[in-house]
Design a protein around this nucleic acid. Structure first.
Length: 498
RNA sequence: GCUCCGAUAGUGUAGCACGGCCAAUCAUGCAGGACUCUCACUCCUGCGACUGGGGUUCGAAUCCCCAUCGGAGCACCA
């Protein structure tokens, strides 16, 4: 077939393997793709934010374009930005292999937003509304214009200047964009574009420079155009946003970027969590910090030894469907395990250790392989006539039980309290013949190990040599993969996954 | 209340714009087996789905309508 009709093979391949990763983007001739990830830096990146980073940057990589991170930090109050988070986000992007080509901070660009606000006021497309929230809602629900809708641009401009100058109290005035007050979808009727917030911005260079801040629909609309965005991929909770922003684009004669949406993503393992909720829990000491292994932050996953490639694959596999999904961490772990398994050295770690005395055995040194299939050398463990084994293994033993201590020798239990055994032989054949259980162990004078995992802490004893694996991911046999986080005095490891 | 989305195996996902090639893809999961001095990895085999009801059509996962379920917006949050 290859020689007869090579073109048919191509055809077969394209049909069977329709671009495994992301769907094609609609790109116009000669168009340079520009996409962005636009977080509010009110906390660190979580697994949820990661989708935006990975998918957007992946498309940019695929088509060759520009990836921008834009901080939508125009709410100094309710979702108050966190100063450290700006750096964190950029770091996390880099770590994920999605280094931004450009970093934009909305709070730096207020003059731009003000200019467009004035422009729209002049055009009669925006007005200052003095209704309080409830009153406006009544008008809106009744499809009626509020009394402030029809004042002249000149008068509106005066109000605007006073508003910007700080003459009005918070909540007493808001700039609205005129849409269609009779639109059948109430979500689209005359939406708010700017409101008054007198709390200072956390960024020292901004601080109390402004008291009138744009809302997302306005800020995002302007920026997406100013930055030349060609495509936007974001959550479908922002679908209406596009329709609202459409009015601004129409007034200003702009063309809206092509949009795609994804549904809500929920992880089985993590309940509902909000950035502000987490922040509070951390302050209360319920978590050790943003990188507490129980949290779904990128910092935590990173510390636990989840590799960025695993996260990328995981997100790309998930695609950009509009369906709301609920997915398990196990899928991410499976991805990570495949990457980590060939490189992780193996060690013994005994949790809930129980001492076992072995009679009739000579002190010895054993050299188990660092990896079962890759040729990476050996470890060295010295023992005399005592080892520790896991309590859960010890509990299954009775007098007379024969058991294999992995990579060491076979013993027969002679007493369970205290736990004692006598040396039998070294023969691996007899292990197979007698179907002995093979358990791991550790020297009694090993190094103390503490493992921090999403399900709590494990403490026990490990081989001394683990201390040479700082910052590496190892596999504690019959336990799971862990990243060695620190090695002074005791070894502290973060649990990756089974 | 009004409006807008969505629905394929346990979980994700491909297929749906141009109906037939779908007895429906891939991954993960689960079950069994092989390998193995780890409950890891690898390999083999198997399990498992078009939400329901109408309609259009020679033919529907794919088009239309209704229902059900899930999500979202109507904020001076992003």
């Amino acid at each position: 077939m290859e020689s007869l009709a090579p073109e048919l093979i191509d055809e077969l391949n394209t049909k069977k393997d329709p671009d495994k990763g992301l769907k094609e983007l609609e790109v116009e001739e000669g168009q340079k793709v520009i996409m962005r990830f636009a977080p509010n830096p009110n906390g660190p990146a979580t697994l949820g934010s990661t989708r935006g980073i990975v998918i957007n940057s992946e498309y940019v990589k695929k088509y060759g374009g520009k990836f921008i991170i834009r901080f939508d930090d125009t709410d100094p109050q309710t979702k108050r930005p966190m100063l450290e988070a700006y750096e964190w986000y950029v770091d996390d992007c880099k770590w994920l292999g999605a280094e931004p080509d450009e970093v934009v901070i909305a709070s730096d660009r207020m003059p731009v937003y003000y200019d467009y606000a004035r422009k729209l006021i002049e055009m009669g497309k925006a007005y200052i509304c003095f209704c309080d929230g409830a009153d406006f809602k009544k008008f809106k629900d009744a499809k009626k214009a509020c009394p402030h809708r029809d004042v002249s641009p000149e008068e509106n401009m005066e109000h605007w200047e006073k508003m910007v100058a700080g003459d009005y109290e918070e909540k007493s005035a808001v700039l609205r964009i005129k849409t269609d007050i009779t639109h059948k979808d109430p979500a689209l009727r005359d939406f708010g574009a700017f409101r008054i917030v007198k709390a200072p911005h956390p960024r020292p260079e901004i601080a109390d420079k402004y008291c009138v801040w744009p809302l997302l629909d306005f800020e995002g609309a302007i920026e997406d155009h100013e930055l030349g965005m060609t495509h936007i991929i974001r959550g479908k909770d922002l679908m209406d946003s596009e329709k609202r922003q459409g009015y601004i684009y129409e007034y200003l004669g702009w063309k809206y970027p092509k949009t795609t949406h994804w549904g809500r993503i929920k992880m089985h393992e993590f309940g509902k969590f909000s950035t502000s909720g987490l922040r509070k829990a951390i302050e209360e000491g319920k978590y050790s910090g943003w990188d507490d292994p129980r949290l779904p932050t990128l910092q935590a996953l990173r510390r636990r030894g989840i590799l960025p490639e695993a996260i990328r694959k995981f997100m790309i596999e998930m695609g950009v469907g509009e369906t709301d999904i609920s997915i398990s961490m196990n899928t991410l772990y499976a991805e990570n395990r495949k990457l980590v398994d060939p490189t992780a050295n193996r060690y013994f770690f005994v949790w809930d250790p129980v001492e076992m005395e072995i009679t009739e055995a000579e002190p010895c040194t054993v050299n188990p392989a660092l990896h079962p299939t890759e040729d990476r050398g050996c470890r060295e463990i010295k023992i005399k006539n005592q080892v520790v084994i896991c309590k859960e293994d010890a509990e299954k033993l009775q007098s007379g039980s024969k058991i294999r201590l992995k990579d060491l020798y076979n013993v027969e239990v002679t007493s369970t309290e205290p736990l004692q055994a006598k040396y039998l032989n070294d023969s691996i054949e007899s292990v197979k013949k007698d179907k002995m259980r093979i358990i791991h162990w550790a020297p009694v004078d090993g190094v103390p190990v503490k493992v921090l995992s999403p399900d709590g802490e494990f403490t026990g004893v490990g081989e001394k040599q683990v201390t040479t694996e700082l910052d590496k991911i190892v596999q504690f046999e019959r336990f799971g993969f862990c990243r060695i986080d620190s090695v002074d005095g005791q070894v502290v490891a973060y649990y990756t996954h089974k």
